[in-house]
Nucleic acid binder design. Structure first.
Lengths: 113, 113
DNA sequence: TTGATATATTAAAATATAAGAATGTTTGAA
DNA sequence: TTCAAACATTCTTATATTTTAATATATCAA
């Protein structure tokens, strides 16, 4: 089981527009670097850097196919995160019903609502 | 419906150890600043900075209770993210079955596995 | 064995983020 | 009307991230 600290680090790694698009694509199947270059509008070295970052953190991996590096998802949290990012949330959370007590509750009987 | 870009920004905001702990606490109920100071081992101004960042991005909000600011969750994605972070993933994703085709599939019949 | 394709690495510049220190604001209680 | 509690803001410094540009490597095909 991975630590929470590790998970948060992972979240940080994922939280980048280019990397999310990469991971989103990879949830649909294997892709090679050139495939990514086609739909991300960034340079080849930059694509490569993002891929190697993701690989360094164990998020993705690749196998060789001729001279192509075929990247695929490795960390099982990714599909769940992608699903979350694409999910529709129409409402805000309801505000707390009525002034729940915090530890520091110095003003009982003086609640404003 | 919020844009994906907004969601990614949000993810970035959340992906910080202190802020995750704040949000984790808030999934359990309302807390005021001093409550946070107690269990986060950081200075009051730093707590305040994190809270105000979270509020600026609409993740949390507060109501006043006497002189206390009672913070609560506002963005409905948060409980889901916290759940994800705490979820157990025991296995890696299975490697792709056998060399699926990338767009650039120049080497058919020469697959290595 | 040479050229082209596919991809990586490195260094530098630009930018963003985090933490700490000092100080400011607001409000209730005395 | 003053004090103290609760909290925010601002500025600075330290550090991390991102991008760009240039260059390198590895492999297949001819």
């Amino acid at each position: 089981m991975r630590s929470l600290g590790r998970r948060i680090e992972l979240l940080k790694i994922i939280a980048h527009p280019v990397r999310v698009r990469i991971l989103d694509e990879l949830t649909k199947g294997v892709k090679c670097v050139t495939d990514f270059e086609e739909f991300l509008e960034i340079s080849q070295p930059n694509v490569s850097q993002h891929l190697s970052l993701l690989r360094r953190y164990g998020v993705i991996d690749y196998y060789m196919d001729g001279r192509l590096r075929c990247y695929f998802l490795r960390d099982p949290i990714i599909p769940d995160i992608i699903k979350l990012l694409n999910k529709d949330y129409i409402e805000e959370l309801p505000a707390p019903a009525c002034c729940p007590v915090t530890k520091k509750g110095k003003y009982p009987g003086k609640r404003r609502h």
